[in-house]
Design a protein around this nucleic acid. Structure first.
Lengths: 222, 222
DNA sequence: TAGATTGTTAATCGATTAACAATC
DNA sequence: TAGATTGTTAATCGATTAACAATC
């Protein structure tokens, strides 16, 4: 029996805490950016400074992934990006569907950044019969009744919910029935999902309210 | 000298932690929803259940605001909503501008939910001269050079940055020069701002990546 | 009144930061 | 080599949860 040191380094069963994952996505974006700029090496201090963190947090976070820096020299940007891509699965493509063809849904369906980041939008749905059949970019808006079949046919893993909040839970339930693995909820309402389905909520209006609170805080500061 | 008990209850100078603020916005949305449904009273347990939290967290959070429930009965939804509105400043209108008239920018500028939530979009800007002069809803797309003047004329407090990531920092700097109080950053890049300006970052692609990671975790679970 | 629910204190849990030996 | 930076352990800090007296 030979040992397999490169696998043993970290136990992959220990899942990485959510706040760390959130930052790993930032490190990935930054590493790619540095790569494009032709910068080969980067130190934890520099990453920290660019992203508004401490170097300690950066090193601690990166210790979760299967990748090492070099003392005195820092991290190779290319290898860092590779390791983060692998850990996050950010190089694997996942087909997505947008539900809701209002302003926000349309924008998301057309957003080129999703395709670039391996999240191609393969279908758009809306409950309004007057929208069904119209086109968004290259896609036809489909009715809700054809959702289950299309989700399976197009092998869609993630549903982006951009409907009025009163319909959010119903839409989520339909997505789950249709075998979706993850839901990105852009409505203000909290959605409930079974343990087998992953959920991330964005809530732009909430973030604006948080921002407003911060603004008031700063303005009224000493 | 008379004491002022209703003011003394909580020291308003102790600012509320960010995770609590984020949840207060959820309580507010939920309280409004209950109000519309004609539900007068709600217990911390029910709020917790609806939002995926513990009742302990809900009570702890609500202890930060100037408002009390009633033992055995719970919280009056109307008064809860009022108190949260006051604490968050969510009943005060703040004019916003959208910078970037691409798909996302257009969607945000047209998003009726912002106006409803006291964040009317008063201006839209884009650096592309071919877009300047075109219309979005009732608004004319303006060039970046007229930004400072329009920001002041329209009394805009918050700028929503929806430009390509390479332009994000430059746009933020211009907004800050023009006297903006808060920035909502929708690009993937981290933006740096002085202490006098509040910043909230949304990063939809990052959230999709987090979601993808969660999906993989769940799928490969025991 | 009896029982349910609040408000708050104390305990636990987890995340961030500091510190430093290892090392290139 | 000397000095800088990593990886990791330990200390601190903060957030969440548990528990329970107060109370309606």
């Amino acid at each position: 029996m030979t040992s397999i040191p490169q696998m043993a380094r970290k136990n992959p069963k220990v899942s990485i805490p959510a706040p760390v994952i959130a930052r790993l996505t930032q490190y990935l974006a930054h590493a790619r950016h540095l790569q494009q700029e032709g910068i080969r090496m980067v130190a934890s201090r520099e990453i920290a400074h660019a992203l508004g963190l401490t170097s300690s947090t950066v090193r601690q976070d990166l210790s979760h992934i299967d990748f090492s820096g070099t003392a005195k020299r820092g991290y190779e940007t290319a290898k860092l990006a590779d390791a983060l891509n692998r850990e996050l699965g950010a190089d694997r493509t996942v087909n997505v569907a947008v539900i809701g063809a209002g302003n926000l849904g349309r924008a998301l369906a057309l957003h080129a950044g999703f395709e670039r980041e391996c999240f191609p939008v393969r279908a758009v749905f809306d409950a309004n019969p007057r929208l069904v059949g119209k086109r968004i970019g290259g896609m036809r808006i489909e009715g809700m009744d054809s959702l289950p079949a299309i989700m399976r046919r197009e092998d869609i893993g993630i549903g982006i919910v951009a409907v009025p909040k009163s319909a959010a839970q119903k839409v989520a339930d339909l997505l789950i029935l249709s075998g979706v693995k993850g839901i990105l909820n852009l409505t203000t309402t909290h959605i409930r999902v079974p343990k087998k389905v992953a959920l991330v909520e964005v809530r732009i209006v909430s973030r604006l309210q948080e921002l407003q609170y911060l603004v008031t805080q700063i303005t009224h500061a000493p």
